[in-house]
Design a protein around this nucleic acid. Structure first.
Lengths: 232, 232
DNA sequence: GCAAAAGTGTTGTCCTTACACCCATGC
DNA sequence: GCATGGGTGTAAGGACAACACTTTTGC
């Protein structure tokens, strides 16, 4: 019976699979994405997401983590599957289906260890052309992030373990493109109860230093709600 | 240069791709899913999602729509990509990567035209074993639906074009597994302003008939908000 | 007239918003 | 001492939750 199953699978057309990582970080109060110059002569000089083909017996999560490691040297980074893109003409070399992962990381904590293909941070809102359909993918991920960051504590993956409330607010303001009231923002997060006071302060600032907090993931996991109400 | 790209793609391992459709409907105040008996002898008698391999130059959305049409006879159904599953051992016949789509439809309006493989509706919360990793996939889609229905007007895809407020409330109560106050529910939807009074009434009910409403998708698209607030 | 569900309003509570003053630090 | 941003409280308005009675229909 296993043979039946194997026969069946053998009859299926086979498709080259890739993963692409949209690696987001936060520098100078703006959202950045790690991009390389494309390997392909066809896209010479154009910017490209960090991607690679999926190995023979590798699952997609593993492949995404591997790509991240190979391209940047970073490990232990927050990664989430976003969407699979499959337009038959999205790759000039023939049909390639790609599953896209978003990676959010603290640029201070995870230093770039590799600089092949001119790997660099680019401001998300200033990117013009990109290779393949990567601009479409990037835009998709940005919208995904805007939605996701409002309902999930993703912002903390973009910040150091210890951060000030101002840094946190900067993340939300930059990503959601809104201005928030500093006092209400503070109250909101205080009420949630997920911020731990580290009893440390900012240093190297030219004004009154703020307290540094850390996010209590454990208590978040325990307290997070289920039914939130119908709202659209 | 196109040759370079084609050479590159040629070097990638190739993987059989499938789509699986989690086709959800609402009957007798409970959420149902359309399942078949598996084709594979190995899974003889076990329930399976509606899936098929992806054709050579077909994109995934197209494949999902095709599967739906082939298996049920239905077209023009709400379909959304949910996730791609890729564990190397998820299929007994060897590696198969599957992209899962959720389909929400009105069981009254879309009659089943095909009954191959004992295609039937099953109550989502009473399903025991399934072929492959399909139970995991179904659970994933159910959680996806619970979240998604609270922030997107998906419920209307499960109902006839004209529906009573009671029917609408039943959808939310069944899917979210909560009891809602009838008066507050009514007020909430009245305040949204997306329900159009059709000036028709329920018929064939053994009690006072309720008004029938339709959902105004156009005004929803115009009015839907962007920034909703940070809430997790 | 009885059963069953539709339709309707009010009140209290909580959450959200708007807004202004003093404080700590670097220069 | 001045510039910069940190830290705090309060009042008004809006959203949400809790709750009971009357109405319409089928039988």
């Amino acid at each position: 019976m296993l043979k039946d199953a194997a026969e069946l699978v053998k009859s299926y057309p086979r498709v080259p699979l890739t993963v692409d990582c949209v690696i987001l970080g936060f520098i100078d109060n703006s959202l950045k994405v790690l991009l390389i110059k494309s390997d392909l002569p066809l896209y010479h000089g154009q910017l490209s997401l960090l991607g690679d083909n999926v190995h023979a017996e590798e699952d997609l999560d593993t492949a995404a983590n591997r790509v991240l490691k190979e391209r940047t040297g970073m490990a232990n980074v927050y990664l989430e599957q976003v969407h699979t893109f499959s337009k038959p003409d999205r790759h000039p070399g023939g049909r390639v289906v790609t599953t896209v992962y978003a990676s959010l990381l603290d640029t201070k904590h995870h230093a770039l260890l590799i600089h092949d293909n001119e790997l660099k941070w680019h401001s998300v809102n200033q990117i013009q052309g990109m290779a393949f359909d990567h601009k479409i993918i990037l835009d998709f991920c940005f919208q995904w992030l805007q939605k996701r960051i409002q309902e999930h504590p993703l912002a903390f993956n973009l910040l150091p373990v210890k951060f000030s409330l101002r840094q946190l607010q900067n993340v939300y303001e930059a990503i959601l493109n809104v201005k928030l009231d500093r006092r209400n923002f503070r109250k909101k997060f205080a009420a949630m109860g997920f911020l731990q006071d580290t009893s440390e302060m900012e240093t190297l600032v030219t004004h009154r230093p703020g307290k540094l907090y850390s996010f209590d993931f454990v208590s978040y996991e325990q307290k997070k709600k289920n039914f939130m109400g119908i709202d659209f």
